[in-house]
Amino acid sequence: MDITIIWTIVVITLLGVTLAAVLFLVARKFRVEEDPRIDEIEKLMPGANCGGCGFAGCRAFADSCVKAGNLDNNFCPVGGNETMKQVAAVLGCAAVEQAPKVAVIRCNGSCANRPKVNEYDGLATCRVKAALYSGDTGCAYGCLGCGDCVAACENDALKMNPETGLPELDEEKCGACGKCVKACPKGVIELRNKGPRGMRVYTSCVNKDKGPAVKKACAAACIGCGICAKTCTHGAIVLENNVAYIDYTKCKLCRECEALCPTGAIHGVNFPKPLDKDAIKARIKARNEKAKEVQE
């Protein structure tokens, strides 16, 4: 009995020592030299492995940063400028600043604005629905409401609102990784500059049909009347395919377009004050009169 115990101890110990030695030797022999900065940068990353940077994950991004030696083509949209500054410090190069972005859902076709004209009975994903037909509303361009974007979001920033049938964004959680943009078969979602204190103006519609057809399909759609484009003093609005597109790099947040839009398709968000339509209209009127005077 005693002998058995002693033998057991001896054998196990010997086995342990041998294996440890083998492991040690193998680890030395096959050691892979890796730039320690990759680890360092990876630690600075948000760690969501969302792929928003265009790489497979945070480590692949870190690897690419170190290999390039600069940050000209590498930017982590989730970590933003703060993180990139730290990465720049590790690499000892200049950080390239980018304006923080946010996902913007450009459709206002809620159940109330955009009545259903048929009932979709297939698999409840936008992708299948989009491949099948133009959708269960009169609008062939807007949100299909099956929530592929919600499923794609790894930050839990998107939620379907059962009342409107549209996704809603939690700006705090959005890392602007662009997964929802890719997931949306209709191209409704766009990454736009977040704007100062989150203030931004955008057209909440992507319907390319002509005015009358659009109006029939949805009460809150852009009808392509072009009033906004004519009024904008910053040249930020272009009317293309019957939709007004607001260039966020040029927009000065004056909100004139928003006040003039006849269907309310242009949205301004996160402004401290509610939109005073009359004041803005008066301002535009005064400016137009002045221009006329100058001309005369």
Partner: peptide, 12 residues
């Protein structure tokens, strides 16, 4: 299970 819905998309 809506097998074909999913398969058709993936096939594409």
């Amino acid at each position: 299970i809506p097998l074909l819905d999913t398969i058709n998309i993936a096939k594409g």
